[in-house]
Nucleic acid binder design. Structure first.
Lengths: 242, 242
DNA sequence: ACCTGAACACCGTTCAAGT
DNA sequence: ACCTGAACACCGTTCAAGT
């Protein structure tokens, strides 16, 4: 009847009784998010969370099988902060673009998310709603069958892959004020045998790093969308080519 | 003279004396890689590594400032496994494609890499050599100035973003044999309110998951390269448009 | 120059016991 | 139904001390 399953909070019934006398799931998630936002992923421990809830060190284990389940709850809660247009009105390019930018913004605002991206099952209601909407958008664009999924995966991969290093960078820079001039010198020393890398140093004319990252994000996003659009046109010409 | 720096093994002199009487860096890295490949990222601890080197629990701290430095060494060692064509001969599309596929293969072979992608500074010799070669490739393609960097970042982000979830998936599936039929039923239950997501279930006609992931990777890769190429043509027509 | 061991301040998780 | 505390088996890192 039941072999091993993917293990996820969302695949089992909450242990709570109907007439909850204990803590509610929202209460626990709220405390978890506060801890994560304040102290980062390493700052969240079951003991601290217990304390924050004025409970024992291991009380949370009654509500949650393990720490990963807790993170799943927090993870999905954050996806709830993303708001997307109606694809049938906005069109697939604008929907994709809004999706990408707003995902980026939300992750930068909750940097602990970066370490979770792609690592936790995304089966919560908010994640599912997003996935559903994005599929609608790509279907409406003209993709069919598995291509809907591939297009969505491509876009999401791009966003994940851009934002993860961006968070790391933000973290490093935020830690202590780093002198950009000195950083450049250090880099020049390390890269001394790599002429093409050194060229970059002359090319980063003094735009603020944040601006460069935003331009970079847009550059790649437009490329990805252009690439998807090109495929769309090709498959329209010969819909059975693959 | 010296403010705070980015902290990296590659930015300081190795503590070793000229006539090394102790362990060599290679020895330590080799042991680290063995531990990581055998037991994963969580399986690596300073104590276990000490034991593997027939040394005390904290001996490695003489060679390395902290665990992150150790991971930096392992990280760069893996990039050494990637071999790329000469871009001037292969052309930028083939170079990019080889880069992407071989990066993916190497990470899937060393799954612990996934958690490190984009999180550690990539300042080791192998990482720098790769970055240098990819810049050469994109410059030769016709990109100029910061666009060289943007193109490279876009491609790398795509690969990172695709591979991270793939490793997670591989991990889940490898752990215990999961019945695909049952998984599908479970998913149908969770996604019952999302019509477009449910459609996917009918579309994943029984291709093996591994094949689907490979097709998916290629789909996205071609899209990204097409998108970059489109930009290349645009900027050739009006090179000063941006 | 290189290595050790004890010690500090933590972890996640289990489980018997309480109410 | 919900919570507690002790206990287990770990961590990374510091540091005085050894050779």
């Amino acid at each position: 009847m039941s072999g091993p399953q993917i293990s996820s909070v969302w695949l089992r019934e909450p242990r709570q009784s109907a007439r909850a006398s204990g803590r509610s799931r929202e209460e626990i998630v709220r405390a978890t998010l506060e801890l994560l936002d304040a102290e980062g992923l390493d700052g969240l421990s079951m003991r601290k969370l217990g304390a924050k809830l004025s409970a024992g060190a291991t009380s949370v284990y009654w509500y949650v099988e393990n720490k990963d389940e807790l993170l799943e709850l927090a993870y999905d809660a954050i996806w709830g902060e993303i708001s997307l247009p109606v694809p049938e009105e906005a069109g697939w390019r604008e929907t994709s673009s809004t999706f990408a930018h707003s995902m980026r913004a939300v992750i930068l605002a909750h940097p602990w998310m970066a370490a979770l991206l792609g690592r936790l099952p995304a089966l919560g209601p908010n994640a599912l709603a997003m996935a559903d909407l994005m599929r609608r958008s790509f279907r409406q664009a003209g993709f069919q069958g598995l291509d809907i999924d591939y297009a969505n995966t491509t876009l999401t991969a791009y966003v994940f892959g851009m934002v993860i290093p961006e968070v790391a960078w933000q973290q490093t820079m935020g830690a202590e004020e780093i002198d950009p001039k000195e950083m450049r010198e250090t880099f020049a020393r390390v890269a001394k045998d790599f002429p093409d890398l050194l060229d970059r140093l002359t090319e980063v004319n003094d735009l603020p790093a944040r601006t460069v990252r935003e331009i970079s994000f847009d550059f790649g996003l437009v490329s990805v969308l252009d690439g998807l659009e090109a495929r769309l046109h090709r498959s329209r010409e010969s819909p059975f080519s693959l």
